[in-house]
């Protein structure tokens, strides 16, 4: 039987978002509160998403140096 680690609640994706599991309220940099809407949410870490605070995949078109 293979060893299996329990699932993390927070997962930092190299070059991309932070995955957040479960229900949370995220306060953005302007103080606005956003409740998570899905079982797993992706929080933008690159600052360039058009759907902040959620990731919308924009990090993938940034030059690697500007990715989180």
């Amino acid at each position: 039987m293979t060893e299996v680690a329990p699932r993390p609640d927070v997962e930092l994706c190299p070059g991309g978002p932070m995955l957040l599991r479960g229900d949370h309220v995220v306060v953005d940099d302007e103080g606005v509160r956003h409740a998570t809407k899905r079982p797993v949410s992706a929080v933008c870490r690159c600052g360039k998403s058009a759907s902040k605070p959620w990731c919308d995949g924009t990090h993938k078109v940034l030059p690697p140096k500007l990715r989180p």
Partner: peptide, 14 residues
């Protein structure tokens, strides 16, 4: 799908 698949792509790959 803008937000859902930004999550799904990470889960699907990683």
């Amino acid at each position: 799908h803008v937000e859902a698949d930004a999550v799904h792509e990470q889960v699907a790959l990683r």
